[in-house]
Design a protein around this nucleic acid. Structure first.
Lengths: 222, 222
DNA sequence: GCCCTTGACGCTTTATCCAAAACCATGCCT
DNA sequence: AGGCATGGTTTTGGATAAAGCGTCAAGGGC
């Protein structure tokens, strides 16, 4: 378990780069130079190119033929787009997962919610939040749907990290608890709309730039 | 326009392979041997591997590390899954596209419907059907959503080609006309549910196998 | 002074080459 | 006769090398 050597170098590179893009270590628009990356990982650039293709498919990078690959940029419009896609697909997944949800699963989801509330930084909050959504949706047993949702989660997380770079305030997640309460009653018809709104909620607040000016930051928080 | 040389060899290979998989020229489970394909296209295996990554992301191929790449298999469960994802996402796209739909676009969509009704084979019907959906959804201006829908269309088409291999009966597409009628009235609230049902409709009919036995074939027809 | 050419450089893209893992068939041993 | 070891063969995955396209800047023509 120590190494990921059971899968290919390309997939390892793709995972690490995806993480860097999502967490904001790589800024939008940054050029990804294949032999620099290859050198960093101690490989040739062939697997790096394959990793690029995967990032491209995930919407984390854009490639212009013969001009190289760059970290995908995004704007408020795309944040909204991803949020709405997530809303549509997560509701679908929840409707199919609901019949298979057990008390044990819901308990785990509650633990994830608590972990989120107790998180001291964005990163651990995001991890807990993702665990919550994954837990209640996975039982739908629709692999393609889950894969699509997972990619959208990565995009959401990217927006989240991009806005809340420094400060982080603790909040308690009432939406998650409401969803859990409905699911415990087997009341999917009420749980679904809450999830739909929850995922689409986009926080917006003024953020002071280094230059002293303020701009509206935004973030998907669901 | 004669050559696709304006983009990379990898993308050309990926397009051609995708087409072969979708149209059923490549059966599910078929192993895709990289240097055979490389030889066929007169290239090396490097761009072929990149094409594999794209096919993988589209769900048309599955790759096991060190064991190669195979054409993805599918079953009725996945057909349903794709249909429901399409329903959810196409409805979302339509809601956003509706305000931007012009009479000219709707006329083109009607032409596509007529072309579909007049199609003599599955291939041209599929092309016309896809044109219809693309026309009424593209104005939503949500590129990521449209890309996702496009991949799902490819999957749908694959199921379609898999079932209707030989025979093909002409039908007139009442759903398309109903949707167009509602859209012409600007009545999106009625158009959306029709589209949602239309996309999820899965044809099912007995098909005689070569062995004389019959099985239930299925196909997404929307 | 401004625009276009031209050449050098870096990067992407593809080809050729190599090692290691997986597959297949044969034959040996039980 | 059947299962397991073992060799060769195929195939994947990666490294290295070479070729081609894009970019940028300096210099010359208008």
């Amino acid at each position: 378990m120590t190494s990921a050597s059971e899968d290919t170098i390309a997939s390892r590179i793709s995972r690490i780069l995806a993480d860097r893009i999502v967490t904001g270590q790589l800024d939008p628009g940054t050029k990804l130079r294949q032999d620099h990356i290859a050198e960093e990982f101690g490989t040739s650039h062939v697997p790096v190119r394959e990793a690029f293709r995967r990032l491209e498919a995930q919407g984390l990078a854009v490639s212009e033929p013969r001009r190289g690959v760059r970290v995908a940029s995004f704007d408020l419009k795309e944040v909204r787009e991803v949020a709405q896609m997530r809303a549509a697909l997560e509701v679908l997944a929840l409707r199919h997962a609901a019949p298979h949800l057990t008390a044990a699963i819901l308990d785990q989801a509650e633990e994830a919610t608590v972990a989120g509330d107790n998180s001291r930084d964005v990163r651990s909050w995001e991890e807990a939040n993702r665990r919550f959504h994954t837990l209640i949706l996975t039982p739908c047993g629709m692999p393609r749907l889950l894969a699509a949702i997972s990619d959208l989660h990565a995009a959401s997380a990217r927006f989240l990290f991009a806005s809340w770079r420094s400060e982080w305030e603790v909040r308690t997640d009432h939406d998650h608890r409401a969803i859990l309460a409905f699911l415990r009653q087997g009341n999917i018809e009420n749980a679904a709309p809450v999830l739909e709104r929850h995922v689409q909620w986009i926080g917006q607040k003024p953020v002071r730039n280094a230059s002293g000016t303020t701009r509206d930051a935004f973030a998907i928080v669901g």
